[in-house]
Design a protein around this nucleic acid. Structure first.
Lengths: 269, 269
DNA sequence: CAACAGTGTTGCGCTTGATGCAACGAGATG
DNA sequence: CATCTCGTTGCATCAAGCGCAACACTGTTG
């Protein structure tokens, strides 16, 4: 309704099968804020005719990818997706490797720990241990976050080449809070500092009241393939607390990187 | 190759859009044992022409639902699925409710804890805490398990009506190990006992060396909507150990059920 | 209570777009 | 270098998905 219509996304190279593209567009309509949607709404958001939308949803329902509420007859994403995603996660041997290390980090910090990977212009959480504390347990599996305003994202950006960064970042950086860095030059400065220190900090740059620190995980190819992060409410993540966490975070990241076959080389001035 | 062709599944009511059904069939080809598949293999498994298979895969790749290995050019499931599944999990308020209780249970038992829901004729793990112990951490998010030979599945079966059970269970129960109950009458006996005790035990009925116990979670409608289970290697789950775990398991399940609005009624002889 | 404004679903021809064929290029293998 | 086998792609065909419009249904409204 209030959202601008998503134009049927014009894929770059080679035509995608239209029906599949449409089905995926429909699945992508569902968000954290709007977990349940009606046919008409989806139709408006995607620009797909109402009857086609209804038929595609009905097909997806038979496949278990969406479910329909008995009463409201609205649609929501289905458990079939969870099964498939489970296979994806199972495939990532990374998850097994990190387990003991992050468990220890979680025990020490009592805050939420996340492992994220880069996927196009977002980072996706592939493993998390939630904070046992009553207030806040943000980190959620599969959650996608922007790059320029999260500790995790800034780590990925910092270890890219300038070209890769330019390809991923838009001209105008979207402000999420009043602390979000929206100036490209300023962001570049920040990233340089991240690269030097080997970790990134984000204080309420993405969400008010949320702070996080992240460090890179590297494998045998010396590439940054993932990040480990600690996140929690800002009032528990003050300067002193973060300074205390940093050594543990860096120890965790180097431990995991070593297990992944990373050999620390001094040849990176 | 060695697998029998999946006939293009004839859905019961109303025709599904063919392309979508095909795409989903292709996605379902990937399993735990075969996380990477080539076009030809998929084509044979699904019975879809090789060229169509290639095109559908290519479309799914553009959507992030599958990835293609650079070298082998084989396909595997993609991270896009994890993002969508994340939204599904987020939607299940159940997950939030159970967190503190199962964390406590994990702390006490030091074994893997799973929360599962019933989806058609399988149970799906929607939340888990892995055992911190070095040997075995089975429970995996999104993992689908059969009903008749798992503690979790037997709980679901035990609290169904006879008709529901008959609809879900095949004539011939598939033997997974030499301990799997394959006789329907014997299973009914077992389920009656599960219903009386309010928990189920499975000793190597699904996988050799794996044991588990499960209890039902009920909501305000008095229905069993999920289960909580403790699983671990059999040598750590002997008779004595299980007897020690049962009270904790039952306490956890009743705690969660209470939070879900379940009111224990004595009126069920 | 009838008219209405929503919803999601469904026959029905039309034509678009996904299909199967076959040829192709790229690696691997002998 | 010939020969597999793999995944991809141009092309003509025609079935399959499409938009239209009518439908059934619910809840609201004058």
């Amino acid at each position: 309704m209030e959202e601008p219509l998503l134009p049927e996304r014009d894929q770059n190279s080679g035509a995608s099968i239209r029906t599949i593209h449409r089905a995926c567009s429909i699945l992508r309509c569902f968000t954290e804020d709007r977990p349940e949607l009606g046919v008409t709404t989806i139709s408006q958001k995607t620009g797909i005719h109402k009857s086609s939308t209804s038929r595609i949803l009905s097909s997806l329902q038979k496949e278990g990818f969406v479910e329909q509420d008995e009463q409201s007859s609205k649609y929501r994403l289905g458990l079939g997706l969870v099964s498939l995603a489970g296979l994806v996660l199972e495939r990532l041997e990374l998850r097994d490797v990190v387990q003991p290390s992050i468990r220890e980090l979680a025990r020490i910090t009592q805050e939420t720990i996340n492992i994220s990977v880069l996927k196009e212009d977002e980072c996706i959480n592939i493993e998390n241990i939630n904070s046992p504390q009553p207030i806040q347990h943000m980190g959620l599996l599969g959650r996608r976050n922007p790059l320029h305003c999260t500790s995790t994202g800034k780590v990925f950006l910092a270890f890219m080449t300038q070209e890769e960064r330019d390809a991923l970042l838009p001209e105008q950086l979207k402000p999420y809070t009043k602390h979000t860095i929206t100036d490209r030059a300023q962001l570049e400065e920040e990233l340089k500092s991240v690269k030097e220190r080997d970790y990134a900090i984000a204080h309420e740059e993405f969400k008010e009241g949320l702070s996080a620190i992240a460090a890179p995980l590297r494998d045998h190819s010396q590439q940054v393939i993932a990040t480990v992060s600690i996140s929690g409410p800002t009032y528990r993540m003050g300067k002193g607390q973060i300074d205390a966490y940093i050594p543990h975070l860096l120890k965790t990241s180097t431990d995991i990187s070593t297990k992944l076959g990373y050999l620390k080389s001094e040849a990176s001035p």
